[in-house]
C-alpha cells in the first residue's frame, strides 16, 4: 500500500515536472488522497491501540469479576457446608431429646436451629462482596 501510494506521489511529481502549469492542482488532488491515506493509517493505528487496550482492560476486569464470583461461590460452599453440619447436629440432638424426653437437649437443639436460621448466609455474602469491592491491592481478606 505504502509503495503504491509513493508511486502515485511520484507520478504526481512527474506530471508536475513535465508540465509545471499542471502541477499545483493535480498535485493537490493526489496529495489530498495521500493525506487521506496518512489519516487512515493514523486512525488504523489509533483504533488498533484502543482495541488492544479495550481487550486488555476488559480481560483484567472480567477475570476480576469471575474471581469475585468464584470467591463468593467458595465462600457460600464453605458457609453452607458448616451450616449443614451444625443443622445435622442440632436435628440429631432434637430427635434424641424428644425420644428421651430430655427438655434441656430439646431446648439446646432448638436454640441452635433458631440461631442458625437467624444467621443469614446471604447477609454474610453481601458483606463479603462489599469487603472484596473495597479491597485494596495486596490486602488479605479474612473470611
Amino acid at each position: 500500500m505504502t509503495r503504491t501510494l509513493t508511486k502515485l506521489a511520484s507520478a504526481t511529481k512527474v506530471l508536475s515536472s513535465q508540465s509545471p502549469r499542471l502541477g499545483p492542482d493535480a498535485a493537490a488532488g493526489i496529495e489530498a488522497m495521500f493525506q487521506a491515506w496518512r489519516d487512515y493509517q493514523q486512525v488504523h493505528e489509533t483504533e488498533s491501540t484502543k482495541r488492544e487496550e479495550i481487550r486488555a482492560r476488559s480481560g483484567v476486569e472480567i477475570t476480576r469479576l469471575r474471581e469475585q464470583a468464584q470467591l463468593i461461590r467458595e465462600h457460600f460452599a464453605m458457609i453452607f457446608s458448616e451450616r449443614r453440619d451444625n443443622f445435622d447436629k442440632s436435628f440429631t440432638l432434637l430427635e434424641t431429646g424428644l425420644s428421651n424426653g430430655d427438655d434441656r437437649q430439646i431446648e439446646a437443639a432448638l436454640t441452635l436451629i433458631v440461631t442458625l436460621v437467624k444467621e443469614s448466609p446471604i447477609k454474610q455474602a453481601a458483606e463479603t462482596m462489599r469487603t472484596i469491592k473495597e479491597r485494596v491491592p495486596g490486602q488479605i481478606i479474612d473470611l
Partner: peptide, 26 residues
C-alpha cells in the same frame, strides 16, 4: 467488552441467587 463485563458481573449475582436458593432449602 462492556457486555462481557456485565455478564461477568452477573456471575456474582448468580452465585448470590444460588446461595439464596440454598438458604431457602435449608
Amino acid at each position: 467488552a462492556e457486555v462481557d463485563e456485565k455478564i461477568a458481573e452477573l456471575q456474582s449475582l448468580h452465585a448470590l441467587l444460588d446461595g439464596t436458593s440454598n438458604n431457602i432449602n435449608e
